[in-house]
Design a protein around this nucleic acid. Sequence first.
DNA 1: CTCCTTAATCGAAAATATCGATGGTAAATA
DNA 2: TATTTACCATCGATATTTTCGATTAAGGAG
Lengths: 296, 296
Amino acid sequence: MELKNLITFTQVAELGSFTKAADQLGYSQSTISFQIKQLEEELGCLLFERINHTITLTERGRELVSYAHQIRALTDEFKDNLEKEQECNGHIHIVTPDSVCDEMINASYVDFHRKFPSISIKFTTADTSVMFDMLDHNEADVIITLDTHSYQKDYIIAKEEPLSAHFVANSKSKFAGARNLSIQDIINEPFVLTEYGQGYRRVFDKELAKRSLEITPVLEIGRTDIITSLIAQSDMISFLPDFVTKEMVEAGTLCYLDICDINVDIWKQLIYHKNKWMSKSLKTFIEYVKTLEFSK
Amino acid sequence: MELKNLITFTQVAELGSFTKAADQLGYSQSTISFQIKQLEEELGCLLFERINHTITLTERGRELVSYAHQIRALTDEFKDNLEKEQECNGHIHIVTPDSVCDEMINASYVDFHRKFPSISIKFTTADTSVMFDMLDHNEADVIITLDTHSYQKDYIIAKEEPLSAHFVANSKSKFAGARNLSIQDIINEPFVLTEYGQGYRRVFDKELAKRSLEITPVLEIGRTDIITSLIAQSDMISFLPDFVTKEMVEAGTLCYLDICDINVDIWKQLIYHKNKWMSKSLKTFIEYVKTLEFSK
DNA sequence: CTCCTTAATCGAAAATATCGATGGTAAATA
DNA sequence: TATTTACCATCGATATTTTCGATTAAGGAG
């Protein structure tokens, strides 16, 4: 039972004539005969009675008219919805490190939701490698990484920015205000760092390794908000991107340490898979993120 | 958007695999690819995302699944209904003379309805010629005629019986009990006859005409129940099929007149059009009527 | 590193839909 | 009454569409 035949059928039923339906639908009359016959054979019942070359709907035919209309209504409704959706709604799954998630929720989410209320967003946090796996398995629509400035042919980088990062401590720390410190000066202090899984932590470790140095942190944790609040209450030191600490530094709670002999190259990248179907909402989201100052 | 494709689509969505759906549906895998592609092109949107040879439903795809299920449910419901109807229900339009209508309603309808409660019947009364017109225009499903023993290639006679008919009068009539009367003896009495439109009335007139006789009835009326009750209360005479008068004759209210020199050949016939679609209910009805004593 | 699975693609073959012409019938018209 | 018109069924030829099988490319598992 194909939709095409059903449409022909309803047209015939409405017009009460094969010939008229043929004209209306742009078929030849024999085609209409064929299509109706096909329907009748498939359903195993007569839909029209033909007596003296005029047709009358049978009982079954009348019922089919009703069903056909319902089916028609459903397909129309679906197509209407499709067009409306061209407008913009849908779900987006975005995966980021904890820190970025925090930042985006605090800084941008309310605004985004106000502008595009019909786009629903799911935030998940994950390690860099997991994020790429998720892209590969289409479990994430976009990811944001804090890592080296990487490039791979399977992924598209929608936006990227170098990120400045500093060693940070409580502003009452003995290192606060000290000028031209060396990494050696602080290497034995108690460190709180993000998990190794986070890209920029790996970049950081690699940079130390170049100098044959290594830090064994007293605490490793993904949640950067927890790290900053810990540092604020103790003499621990961390190494964090500025966007995480900026607020507290400006408020005078934390301060950057002036370590001159290490320079970590971290990038913040907005990435999606090259085969990703760009729904309107996904495009909208990406365009929106592009307007943001990434590392403010 | 053809139903075939929708079925394929739902199967793919359910199994999460083109290949599995192909196996299940008995298609080759390339056919599934083609059908889905066809759907996607027609709808102008991606239904599945393909990343690394695995498929994921898109937002639209998920919606289509829901619509497809609804459509599927509708067609299933229709087909179920079809099968149930094989059982037997529907409407039958039967057209008869007044007299037959009366008889059938009184004698058989209650029984028929008890046996086949899901068959609804519409009775209409009409003249013989109108009845045949109605068959020709498929306005009547079956007709019952009281007429000559006729045969025409366009019609199928499902059942037929010769019908005996008598001149009848009030049992207190001066002719009651009289033996070997001639038509001449009663030709000038006041007659009440059925309308000329009823076949057997025409047969009757023709028979008289053979003898160069003619009756001008004092009243012509289709309703034979009215004729009989009139006769019962007056000295009028009528000519009626026995099934109409039998009861009152047995009750002693009316009596047959013993007219020997006229013999009217009337048949009761159950007729339908040769192109008529024999629905189960129509078949049932006809079979039922065949079990009846037609002219009891 | 190899085997297995997956989906896309392509050309050939098969199946199907469509058309136009024809025929028969009934109704409308002259 | 004869003629024309309108209607649907049927048939053979044609056009279109669908399907298949083989191949390709790429990831995943062992």
